[in-house]
């Protein structure tokens, strides 16, 4: 199997595991107790909604604030995102911390990272 991306530009499993997640700069973190964390981030309105808001003159703000609460497992992964650890390292540490099978940890962590990426909370390098 080739280690390079396929012809459609999608990353294969090995490239994806080697990529390094980086946190977005505009995120506020609030710890709630020991086991959870609230992330607050800005979301921009879609261009169409921005136009509608301008038409109805409901202020000039381009976006709104959203919050995400991470549980104990999510906090563990979030703390491992430091701009240096690649996905594979995060998976291995997560598996070791929670005594999980490496494949199970891989699926959990990659799904979690994907959901963070969709929200714009992290990017991949």
């Amino acid at each position: 199997m080739s280690l390079e991306s396929d012809t459609r530009g999608r990353l294969n499993r090995y490239d994806a595991l080697a990529s390094v997640p980086i946190k977005s700069a505009d995120i506020e973190e609030h710890a709630v107790g020991e086991s959870s964390l609230i992330l607050t981030y800005q979301v921009q309105y879609r261009p169409m909604f921005q136009k509608i808001r301008r038409l109805v003159a409901r202020g000039h703000s381009k976006g709104f604030t959203r919050k995400v609460e991470l549980d104990l497992l999510g906090v563990g992964v979030w703390r491992l995102i430091d701009g240096k650890n690649n996905v594979q390292t995060i998976v291995r540490r997560f598996a070791r911390t929670h005594t999980l099978d490496i494949r199970e940890a891989e699926v959990s962590v990659t799904l979690f990272l994907r959901s963070l990426g969709k929200k714009g909370l992290i990017g991949m390098r």
Partner: peptide, 9 residues
């Protein structure tokens, strides 16, 4: 089911 330490928290 796992991790048990999390589920039984």
């Amino acid at each position: 089911w796992g991790p048990a330490s999390f589920l039984l928290l």
